[in-house]
Nucleic acid binder design. Sequence first.
DNA 1: CCAGCCCCCTGTCGGC
DNA 2: TGCCGACAGGGGGCTG
Length: 270
Amino acid sequence: MPELPEVETIRRGLEGYILGRRILEVEVLWPRTVRGMSPEEFRARLAGQRIEALGRRGKHLVIHLASGEGLIIHLMMSGRLLVEEGSVSPGKYDRVLFHLEGDLTLRFRDVRKFGWMTVVEDAEEFLTHLGPEPLGEDFTAEVLRELLNGRKGQLKPLLLNQHFLAGVGNLYADEALFLAGLHPCRRSDSLNGEEIARLWQGIRSALEAGIEDRGSSFTSYRDARGRRGSHQEHLAVYARRGQPCPRCGAPIARMVVGGRGTHFCPCCQQ
DNA sequence: CCAGCCCCCTGTCGGC
DNA sequence: TGCCGACAGGGGGCTG
Protein backbone atom coordinates (compact mmCIF):
# COMPACT_ATOMS: atom_id res chain seq x y z
CA MET A 1 0.00 0.00 0.00
CA PRO A 2 2.29 2.73 -1.20
CA GLU A 3 1.49 6.11 0.31
CA LEU A 4 3.54 9.31 0.21
CA PRO A 5 6.60 7.93 2.10
CA GLU A 6 6.73 4.78 -0.03
CA VAL A 7 6.37 6.66 -3.33
CA GLU A 8 9.00 9.16 -2.20
CA THR A 9 11.39 6.31 -1.33
CA ILE A 10 10.84 4.79 -4.75
CA ARG A 11 11.35 8.19 -6.41
CA ARG A 12 14.68 8.69 -4.65
CA GLY A 13 15.79 5.17 -5.45
CA LEU A 14 14.90 5.47 -9.13
CA GLU A 15 16.71 8.79 -9.55
CA GLY A 16 20.18 7.29 -9.34
CA TYR A 17 19.43 4.73 -12.02
CA ILE A 18 17.18 6.28 -14.63
CA LEU A 19 17.79 10.04 -14.54
CA GLY A 20 19.18 11.26 -17.86
CA ARG A 21 18.60 7.95 -19.63
CA ARG A 22 16.53 7.47 -22.73
CA ILE A 23 13.53 5.16 -22.96
CA LEU A 24 14.27 2.84 -25.86
CA GLU A 25 11.16 0.73 -25.94
CA VAL A 26 7.98 0.14 -23.93
CA GLU A 27 6.16 -3.20 -23.61
CA VAL A 28 2.56 -2.99 -22.40
CA LEU A 29 1.59 -6.41 -21.07
CA TRP A 30 -1.76 -5.45 -19.50
CA PRO A 31 -3.44 -2.80 -21.68
CA ARG A 32 -5.79 -1.45 -19.00
CA THR A 33 -2.81 -0.23 -16.99
CA VAL A 34 -2.44 2.52 -19.60
CA ARG A 35 -5.11 5.20 -19.20
CA GLY A 36 -6.33 7.95 -21.50
CA MET A 37 -4.86 6.55 -24.69
CA SER A 38 -4.15 3.30 -26.48
CA PRO A 39 -1.08 1.25 -25.55
CA GLU A 40 0.21 1.98 -29.06
CA GLU A 41 0.04 5.74 -28.54
CA PHE A 42 1.59 5.33 -25.10
CA ARG A 43 4.54 3.47 -26.58
CA ALA A 44 4.95 5.94 -29.42
CA ARG A 45 4.94 8.97 -27.12
CA LEU A 46 7.60 7.48 -24.84
CA ALA A 47 9.98 5.79 -27.26
CA GLY A 48 13.20 7.73 -27.65
CA GLN A 49 12.44 10.20 -24.86
CA ARG A 50 15.06 11.22 -22.32
CA ILE A 51 14.17 11.25 -18.61
CA GLU A 52 14.83 14.79 -17.36
CA ALA A 53 13.60 14.69 -13.79
CA LEU A 54 11.72 12.57 -11.28
CA GLY A 55 9.00 14.17 -9.22
CA ARG A 56 6.21 13.19 -6.89
CA ARG A 57 2.80 14.71 -6.22
CA GLY A 58 0.87 13.01 -3.45
CA LYS A 59 1.01 9.32 -4.26
CA HIS A 60 1.72 9.96 -7.95
CA LEU A 61 5.18 9.51 -9.41
CA VAL A 62 5.92 12.04 -12.16
CA ILE A 63 8.62 11.25 -14.71
CA HIS A 64 9.44 14.44 -16.59
CA LEU A 65 10.47 13.87 -20.20
CA ALA A 66 12.61 15.92 -22.55
CA SER A 67 9.56 16.86 -24.63
CA GLY A 68 8.05 18.58 -21.59
CA GLU A 69 5.48 15.83 -21.25
CA GLY A 70 5.04 13.92 -18.01
CA LEU A 71 4.71 10.18 -17.45
CA ILE A 72 2.37 9.85 -14.47
CA ILE A 73 2.38 6.58 -12.54
CA HIS A 74 0.06 5.61 -9.68
CA LEU A 75 0.98 2.38 -7.86
CA MET A 76 -2.39 2.10 -6.11
CA MET A 77 -2.23 -0.89 -3.74
CA SER A 78 0.13 -3.47 -5.12
CA GLY A 79 2.22 -1.69 -7.76
CA ARG A 80 6.01 -1.91 -7.71
CA LEU A 81 8.56 -0.11 -9.84
CA LEU A 82 11.76 -2.13 -10.03
CA VAL A 83 15.00 -1.25 -11.78
CA GLU A 84 16.98 -4.21 -13.04
CA GLU A 85 20.15 -4.62 -15.02
CA GLY A 86 19.88 -6.33 -18.38
CA SER A 87 16.86 -7.19 -20.46
CA VAL A 88 14.37 -9.05 -18.31
CA SER A 89 11.72 -11.51 -19.37
CA PRO A 90 8.18 -10.62 -18.36
CA GLY A 91 6.99 -12.11 -15.06
CA LYS A 92 3.48 -13.24 -14.23
CA TYR A 93 2.52 -9.95 -12.59
CA ASP A 94 4.41 -7.55 -14.84
CA ARG A 95 2.10 -5.04 -16.55
CA VAL A 96 4.55 -2.68 -18.31
CA LEU A 97 8.27 -2.96 -19.08
CA PHE A 98 10.38 0.10 -19.93
CA HIS A 99 13.61 -0.76 -21.70
CA LEU A 100 16.15 1.98 -21.03
CA GLU A 101 19.52 2.81 -22.51
CA GLY A 102 22.46 1.50 -20.51
CA ASP A 103 21.03 -2.01 -20.43
CA LEU A 104 18.44 -1.24 -17.76
CA THR A 105 14.83 -2.30 -17.44
CA LEU A 106 12.18 -0.52 -15.38
CA ARG A 107 9.59 -3.12 -14.48
CA PHE A 108 6.04 -2.21 -13.41
CA ARG A 109 4.76 -5.17 -11.46
CA ASP A 110 1.21 -5.02 -10.11
CA VAL A 111 -0.54 -8.11 -8.78
CA ARG A 112 -3.98 -6.54 -8.42
CA LYS A 113 -3.96 -4.51 -11.65
CA PHE A 114 -5.29 -1.37 -9.94
CA GLY A 115 -2.19 0.67 -10.75
CA TRP A 116 -2.24 2.94 -13.77
CA MET A 117 -0.08 5.25 -15.85
CA THR A 118 -0.50 7.83 -18.55
CA VAL A 119 1.40 10.47 -20.51
CA VAL A 120 0.22 14.08 -20.26
CA GLU A 121 1.36 17.35 -21.80
CA ASP A 122 1.30 19.23 -18.50
CA ALA A 123 1.78 17.13 -15.38
CA GLU A 124 1.10 19.98 -12.98
CA GLU A 125 -2.19 20.81 -14.65
CA PHE A 126 -3.18 17.13 -14.76
CA LEU A 127 -2.75 16.91 -10.97
CA THR A 128 -4.35 20.21 -9.96
CA HIS A 129 -7.31 18.44 -8.37
CA LEU A 130 -5.03 17.24 -5.56
CA GLY A 131 -4.88 18.95 -2.19
CA PRO A 132 -1.64 20.47 -0.85
CA GLU A 133 1.59 18.54 -0.33
CA PRO A 134 1.66 17.80 3.41
CA LEU A 135 5.46 18.13 3.58
CA GLY A 136 5.57 21.24 1.40
CA GLU A 137 6.52 24.67 2.77
CA ASP A 138 3.10 26.00 1.81
CA PHE A 139 1.31 23.57 4.08
CA THR A 140 1.22 25.35 7.42
CA ALA A 141 -0.99 24.81 10.46
CA GLU A 142 -2.87 27.94 9.37
CA VAL A 143 -3.55 26.43 5.94
CA LEU A 144 -4.81 23.27 7.65
CA ARG A 145 -7.11 25.38 9.81
CA GLU A 146 -8.61 27.01 6.72
CA LEU A 147 -9.04 23.65 4.99
CA LEU A 148 -10.83 22.18 8.03
CA ASN A 149 -13.18 25.15 8.27
CA GLY A 150 -16.70 24.13 7.29
CA ARG A 151 -15.91 20.43 7.00
CA LYS A 152 -18.55 18.43 8.82
CA GLY A 153 -17.33 14.87 8.22
CA GLN A 154 -15.11 12.69 10.38
CA LEU A 155 -11.37 13.36 10.52
CA LYS A 156 -10.15 9.99 9.25
CA PRO A 157 -12.06 9.93 5.92
CA LEU A 158 -11.07 13.57 5.38
CA LEU A 159 -7.36 12.74 5.73
CA LEU A 160 -7.81 10.01 3.12
CA ASN A 161 -9.50 12.44 0.70
CA GLN A 162 -6.80 13.34 -1.86
CA HIS A 163 -8.68 16.51 -2.83
CA PHE A 164 -8.24 17.65 0.76
CA LEU A 165 -4.61 16.62 1.27
CA ALA A 166 -2.37 14.69 -1.12
CA GLY A 167 -0.46 11.55 -0.18
CA VAL A 168 -1.94 10.33 3.11
CA GLY A 169 -3.38 6.81 3.01
CA ASN A 170 -4.85 4.44 5.55
CA LEU A 171 -1.64 3.65 7.44
CA TYR A 172 -0.29 7.18 7.84
CA ALA A 173 -3.76 8.59 8.59
CA ASP A 174 -4.02 6.27 11.61
CA GLU A 175 -0.48 7.13 12.74
CA ALA A 176 -1.01 10.88 12.30
CA LEU A 177 -4.23 10.82 14.34
CA PHE A 178 -2.49 8.86 17.09
CA LEU A 179 0.41 11.33 17.23
CA ALA A 180 -2.12 14.18 17.36
CA GLY A 181 -4.14 12.46 20.13
CA LEU A 182 -7.32 12.84 18.09
CA HIS A 183 -10.10 10.29 17.67
CA PRO A 184 -10.62 9.21 14.02
CA CYS A 185 -14.35 9.95 14.29
CA ARG A 186 -13.96 13.53 15.53
CA ARG A 187 -15.99 16.02 13.50
CA SER A 188 -13.49 17.92 11.38
CA ASP A 189 -14.76 21.39 12.31
CA SER A 190 -14.70 20.65 16.05
CA LEU A 191 -10.95 21.12 16.57
CA ASN A 192 -9.60 24.05 18.55
CA GLY A 193 -6.37 25.84 17.59
CA GLU A 194 -4.17 23.67 19.74
CA GLU A 195 -5.69 20.48 18.31
CA ILE A 196 -5.23 21.72 14.75
CA ALA A 197 -1.56 22.39 15.52
CA ARG A 198 -1.24 18.86 16.90
CA LEU A 199 -2.91 17.39 13.81
CA TRP A 200 -0.59 19.36 11.52
CA GLN A 201 2.45 18.17 13.47
CA GLY A 202 1.10 14.60 13.57
CA ILE A 203 0.66 14.45 9.81
CA ARG A 204 4.15 15.82 9.19
CA SER A 205 5.83 13.62 11.79
CA ALA A 206 4.09 10.44 10.66
CA LEU A 207 5.10 10.99 7.03
CA GLU A 208 8.66 12.07 7.84
CA ALA A 209 9.17 9.01 10.05
CA GLY A 210 7.92 6.81 7.22
CA ILE A 211 10.40 8.34 4.78
CA GLU A 212 13.20 8.04 7.34
CA ASP A 213 12.52 4.28 7.54
CA ARG A 214 12.25 3.96 3.75
CA GLY A 215 8.57 3.10 3.92
CA SER A 216 6.39 0.43 5.50
CA SER A 217 6.50 -3.10 4.07
CA PHE A 218 3.77 -5.49 5.11
CA THR A 219 3.15 -7.64 2.06
CA SER A 220 3.50 -5.81 -1.21
CA TYR A 221 5.61 -2.67 -0.87
CA ARG A 222 9.23 -2.76 -2.09
CA ASP A 223 11.56 0.06 -3.14
CA ALA A 224 13.06 0.50 -6.61
CA ARG A 225 15.62 -2.23 -5.90
CA GLY A 226 13.14 -4.67 -4.38
CA ARG A 227 14.09 -3.95 -0.77
CA ARG A 228 11.65 -3.74 2.12
CA GLY A 229 11.19 -0.66 4.26
CA SER A 230 11.39 -0.92 8.06
CA HIS A 231 8.70 1.48 9.23
CA GLN A 232 6.23 -1.36 9.91
CA GLU A 233 8.42 -2.13 12.94
CA HIS A 234 7.97 1.38 14.35
CA LEU A 235 4.24 1.97 14.04
CA ALA A 236 2.24 3.01 17.08
CA VAL A 237 -1.24 1.83 16.14
CA TYR A 238 -1.57 0.58 12.55
CA ALA A 239 -2.02 -3.21 12.41
CA ARG A 240 -1.46 -3.35 16.18
CA ARG A 241 -4.92 -4.26 17.41
CA GLY A 242 -4.78 -5.61 20.97
CA GLN A 243 -1.18 -4.56 21.51
CA PRO A 244 -0.38 -1.98 24.21
CA CYS A 245 -0.49 1.69 23.28
CA PRO A 246 3.11 3.02 23.37
CA ARG A 247 1.92 6.05 25.33
CA CYS A 248 -0.52 4.68 27.93
CA GLY A 249 -0.43 0.88 27.61
CA ALA A 250 -4.13 0.45 26.86
CA PRO A 251 -4.89 -2.09 24.11
CA ILE A 252 -5.05 -0.62 20.61
CA ALA A 253 -8.57 -0.85 19.14
CA ARG A 254 -9.74 -1.38 15.58
CA MET A 255 -12.98 -0.15 14.05
CA VAL A 256 -14.30 0.61 10.59
CA VAL A 257 -14.48 4.33 9.80
CA GLY A 258 -15.59 5.48 6.37
CA GLY A 259 -15.30 1.89 5.19
CA ARG A 260 -11.63 1.60 6.17
CA GLY A 261 -10.03 -0.43 8.91
CA THR A 262 -8.96 2.11 11.54
CA HIS A 263 -6.56 1.60 14.44
CA PHE A 264 -6.40 3.89 17.44
CA CYS A 265 -5.89 4.14 21.17
CA PRO A 266 -9.30 4.56 22.84
CA CYS A 267 -7.58 6.14 25.83
CA CYS A 268 -5.18 8.67 24.25
CA GLN A 269 -7.28 9.73 21.27
CA GLN A 270 -10.30 11.89 22.06
C1' DC B 1 -20.63 18.65 1.23
C1' DC B 2 -21.21 13.96 2.97
C1' DA B 3 -22.43 9.01 3.69
C1' DG B 4 -22.95 4.80 1.64
C1' DC B 5 -22.60 1.65 -1.99
C1' DC B 6 -20.49 -0.73 -6.12
C1' DC B 7 -16.62 -1.76 -9.00
C1' DC B 8 -12.06 -2.64 -10.29
C1' DC B 9 -8.57 -7.22 -8.93
C1' DT B 10 -6.32 -11.22 -6.71
C1' DG B 11 -3.76 -13.37 -2.80
C1' DT B 12 -4.73 -14.80 1.70
C1' DC B 13 -7.22 -16.52 5.41
C1' DG B 14 -10.91 -18.61 8.22
C1' DG B 15 -14.70 -21.80 8.32
C1' DC B 16 -16.72 -25.99 7.12
C1' DT C 1 -7.19 -31.50 2.08
C1' DG C 2 -10.01 -28.71 -0.63
C1' DC C 3 -13.56 -25.63 -1.67
C1' DC C 4 -15.81 -21.14 -0.88
C1' DG C 5 -16.87 -16.80 0.74
C1' DA C 6 -15.07 -12.78 3.04
C1' DC C 7 -11.70 -9.45 3.23
C1' DA C 8 -8.23 -5.88 2.17
C1' DG C 9 -7.38 -1.49 -0.03
C1' DG C 10 -7.10 3.65 -3.36
C1' DG C 11 -9.90 5.90 -5.97
C1' DG C 12 -13.64 6.92 -9.36
C1' DG C 13 -18.42 6.96 -10.04
C1' DC C 14 -23.00 6.95 -8.61
C1' DT C 15 -27.12 7.83 -5.63
C1' DG C 16 -29.67 9.81 -1.77
